[in-house]
Design a protein around this nucleic acid. Sequence first.
DNA 1: CGATTCCTTGAGCAACCTCAAAAGCGGTGG
DNA 2: CCACCGCTTTTGAGGTTGCTCAAGGAATCG
Lengths: 220, 220
Amino acid sequence: MLQSKKNSHCNAAPPVRARHWRLRFKRGQRIYAADASGGAWRVLSGAVRLDRNAPGGEESFANLAIKSDIIGAETLIFGRYSFTATALAACVIEPWPESHAPQASDSLLQTLAKAERRTAEVIALRCGQAAERVRRLVMMLAQEPEESPEWQAEELQVVLPSGQDMADITALRLETVSRMVSRLRQAGILAPLRQGDHPSPRMFAVRQTSSDAFRARAST
Amino acid sequence: MLQSKKNSHCNAAPPVRARHWRLRFKRGQRIYAADASGGAWRVLSGAVRLDRNAPGGEESFANLAIKSDIIGAETLIFGRYSFTATALAACVIEPWPESHAPQASDSLLQTLAKAERRTAEVIALRCGQAAERVRRLVMMLAQEPEESPEWQAEELQVVLPSGQDMADITALRLETVSRMVSRLRQAGILAPLRQGDHPSPRMFAVRQTSSDAFRARAST
DNA sequence: CGATTCCTTGAGCAACCTCAAAAGCGGTGG
DNA sequence: CCACCGCTTTTGAGGTTGCTCAAGGAATCG
């Protein structure tokens, strides 16, 4: 069951056409819960973390979905979600498959193939040194600034997830993540960026710097 | 293209029925290479590691497939493999989908859903302390002993992958993996098990011990 | 039986974790 | 508007784990 209680004003997006509507979620908001019934969604922007109910009763990070990924496809068989989905940053999703796109098999395979590749990336986020891991995560989450005429950026930008979320994804401690983000700022890879109308202190411009320079200044 | 050069004697499995044949691979043997053309397979026993050609030209661990998992499903769209597949232990695979099972969409979804859950497990293999990670990997790889009348086991057994493979999967160093396997043996979780006819020093019986006892003796 | 490869074990060190406290931010109510 | 509260982030100091480098031993293959 979708929890759209507190963001009813957010969800009032004008339907583009019949049955083609979108939902918006804010950072940290739950999109759906494991075992709830519902349908599949395509992530149009932002990022979503998926958690499974681990054997020990704990909830543990299971996967990551970003722009154009499909989440909740398993409901098409089981009728229920296998994972809990939470917004890592403000994100927009739409139902999937779209009502006017009836080719089942091909689209499914495409989804499967994309999921496999995304998985490989997520697994790679847990390899190597802490600094590199956090940098790679930030690069994954970086997107082109949408509909900001003033920020017609040559650069990408990102709204960082909470420290705990980044820690869960990279398998680091949140203190370590915080330290690494500080380094990224010092290295100039992340540049603070606050938007005029709604202030967001965790928004940054991302510069694709050679990581060598970054790792060098880690030792100083 | 399947590389069945050195294991031609292995692949001579008697076809059960027309178009329903199986391939066998030994530990460390490559099953297929990324970018090669070929079809999808179901893993009937054993375990397979998948590697992607990482951005840096390196080959990096991408995923794990065990009994009943599907590998190479992406070929049904792209015609080519996205990953390189290597046998972690002696394994048997058969073509997928089976020729006599034409229900496309449902089977695909099932595959997708299973892949997602497997992925969550693999990601979890890179969480927590080294000892626990190696133990969880071993538990994942453990299977019922097949067709061994003498070992009609109440216990599972496992043939450990190479140290480097286990290191790649758990994101540890191979020396660390070796130390943790030694601990598992000392803790009685892994019991050496050499089969009469073909000696295999990396075969173990697996005992599902409470991990508390294991972690306790780690400090001594 | 020799050569090669892989596994094992040790010693020292760096990276990361743990614990703890302070500072920043957002919301609430006087 | 400001004081207060809860929550998240930041920063520090010290401890532990796992990594690095190295050498010896076991297994495999020709």
